[in-house]
């Protein structure tokens, strides 16, 4: 198996469902951070069968709201001196700002580009959110 060295300081996003790692990498703009980043794909996992992992060196300010929307299996570990010093909980956020667009084509947020879409959780099971502006429901579908 390919060996990747442990990072001394930074963040490890673990237990990403296999296939979603590259998508998260792009959505979080990790390529633009300027820090060393490693994306591992299809790593054997006891819990998931196969998983993806992202390691980011010298950076800990990861958008956990977005990760919560992607999957509850994801774990975010903060690393100091090669040890896990904190596990940041990932949960489905009650409020989401700017991460996705309103599904209602008549909503003002889809025509006025300066408006940041804002949503409130409607149903956690179906990842359904209500738009602050038009009050229509948008279901988050990442893939």
């Amino acid at each position: 198996m390919i060996e990747v060295a442990a990072i001394k300081k930074g963040t490890v996003i673990d237990h990403i469902a296999a296939g979603q790692g590259l998508w998260i990498f792009n959505k979080l703009n990790l390529g633009q951070l300027g820090h060393p980043v490693v994306l591992l794909m299809n790593v054997p996992s006891k819990r998931l069968g196969k998983k993806d992992i992202i390691k980011i060196e010298n950076y800990t300010d990861v958008d956990t709201a977005m990760l919560g929307l992607i999957g509850s299996s994801i774990t975010v570990n903060i690393i100091e001196n090669e040890h896990v010093v904190d596990k940041v909980p990932v949960f489905i956020p009650d409020e989401v700002r700017g991460l996705f667009s309103c599904g209602n084509p008549r909503c003002v947020t889809n025509s006025d580009a300066y408006v940041i879409p804002l949503f409130h959780l409607h149903d956690a099971r179906s990842l359904a959110y209500v738009c602050e502006y038009c009050e229509e429901i948008t279901k988050v579908a990442w893939k």
């Binding site: 909503c107 003002v108 408006v115 502006y133 009050e135 229509e136």
Partner: peptide
């Protein structure tokens, strides 16, 4: 009045005087 749904809510965020929704799209 505005054809886009939620437009008066957006406008109210910028208005210093009372703003009344006179109808926004099908909302």
């Amino acid at each position: 009045r505005h054809p886009k749904e939620g437009a008066p809510k957006l406008a109210a965020q910028y208005s210093r005087v009372p703003l009344i929704n006179g109808g926004d799209g099908g909302h």
